[in-house]
Design a protein around this nucleic acid. Structure first.
Lengths: 277, 277
DNA sequence: TTGCTCCTCACGTCACGTGAGGTGGC
DNA sequence: TTGCTCCTCACGTCACGTGAGGTGGC
């Protein structure tokens, strides 16, 4: 029979852990004398090892208590293990990706002498409903006109609360300055009840932008003409972290833009990416 | 300029996070009015994204604050990233191993209909100094005699505080009941100052048992003749989790055994294992 | 006036680690 | 008596989540 100090040395755990497990009722000592000293036997060592094994498998102490009390069926245990397994697989993937990011940053310091404090974030985007038109246009000025038209079409036709941010989707595979395949529209918070028409009678289309698992995003302030700076930054991020572009890019106007002050427009540029294997 | 709610939606973080970052001085809003409302601008969005990027890389908020304040050189950053990288590699390994353990348990439930609440633990053992003799013996009774001899040799020759547990090391590759290659001795807490001799004049040897990265261990109470039950349990653990034996096994007597009551001896059986690739 | 948004506490999280201050046993 | 071991609080951890209870702005 062992006092807590020796028992903790045998089991290679801390005294605090043993007192804690006693406190929560997970592992009670065989005996506690009237001075409060805890005494453990070999039986407790087996019990403790069982607990440590289950802890290693990823169960919480609360779950372990239930398992030891045989309150869980084999089926329930199996289900818990399956959940744990898929969690582990996901965690492994995420950790491997993080490792690549860390390696990319080390390479960056080695190549450039410093860690550029980038603001390119990677995140998941859910599916989004938008109300839009798609056109091939010849200049940034034409894009600006299209946006103005959109604003006019929507004005008063839809409750302000039904509309989210203004956004553009760049569909062209190759970017040509005089032939931009552009979709422009508004994020929809609620579906429109009636068709919305442009001044030329052309209707806006409500459709879904697909969900994107990995969206590389970066905020810029300023004219669309300056977008290539951000594009370059994102490209560098994408390349150095082992991704590649995977679909049309988006520009989300975080504030409703004022056409006379586009130089202070706040835009998030978004590029869908995927692992380049 | 955005209030906290809209800003949190744009950045896809919680208001609580923004208030917390304000509280710890990591990201201050552009302006706070006299009612306490926080106002954020596009500039803050970039800052926040930088923070999120660094958080993703695994830095703590405290470290991020230092990085943003440019209090760390590129060299220091590189060093931190290297540490982070090796942590990640280790974590990946450990997670993969945990995944195999979980899979083994699922397979166990599928095969046996229940989760045996095993008490086989896996742990790292440090190098250990022991004072021992090695002999080929013909029976368990001979082993018992050897242990008795050891106890007599040590009695009074070494301070009790210098001696740890009694232990045996089973060196034989193949286990033959009548030719057991057995090493028996005591764990050394302090080196002996003078040679310690057996009754026949043979000296005990002080030597180091190598450190073992993965030691599968299980406690048993009872006669050494019953050890095969535990051995079988450990073998099953080893096989079903994708390990294989890697070196001589050990028996550690957690309590100094009384030769007349070996049936209540408390012994930890230890088997070094390695990944079976 | 009614929602909606914002505010500041303040507790909870999970499994202990780490003292502080004091007592028991040889 | 002196160490050594044990005891019970009680706070700290890390980065927020989650109410409670109340106010500001259109």
């Amino acid at each position: 029979v062992f006092r807590i100090g020796e028992f903790s040395r045998l089991a290679r755990v801390s005294c605090r852990l043993l007192r804690y497990y006693d406190e929560i009722g997970l592992l009670r000592p065989a005996r506690i004398d009237d001075t409060g000293y805890r005494y453990y036997g070999a039986e407790q060592l087996s019990q403790l090892n069982r607990i440590l094994v289950l802890k290693e498998l990823g169960f919480s102490l609360e779950e372990i208590a239930k398992i030891l009390a045989r309150e869980l069926s084999a089926g329930e245990l199996r289900a818990m293990l399956l959940v744990r397994k898929s969690d582990l697989v996901r965690a492994l993937d995420a950790e491997a990706e993080r490792l690549r990011h860390v390696e990319a940053r080390i390479a960056q310091i080695d190549a450039e002498g410093e860690l550029s404090s980038d603001d390119v974030v990677l995140r998941a985007e859910p599916e989004t409903r938008i109300l839009s038109v798609r056109r091939t246009i010849a200049s940034f000025a034409a894009a600006r006109e299209l946006i103005a038209e959109l604003g006019a079409a929507v004005h008063g036709r839809l409750p302000a609360s039904a509309l989210g941010a203004l956004m553009c989707v760049a569909h062209a595979e190759e970017f040509e300055l005089d032939r931009i395949d552009l979709e422009a529209g508004f994020v929809l918070v609620a579906e429109p009840r009636a068709p919305v028409l442009l001044s030329n009678g052309e209707p806006l289309t409500a459709r879904s932008l697909p969900a994107v698992e990995r969206m590389a995003a970066c905020v810029r302030v300023g004219l669309p003409e300056h977008a290539h700076l951000i594009t370059a930054r994102i490209s560098r991020f994408v390349a150095s972290n082992g991704y590649r572009l995977a679909g049309p890019s988006r520009e989300v106007f975080l504030e409703r833009p004022r056409l006379d002050r586009m130089e202070s427009a706040i835009v998030e540029m978004q590029f869908p990416v995927e692992k380049a294997v």
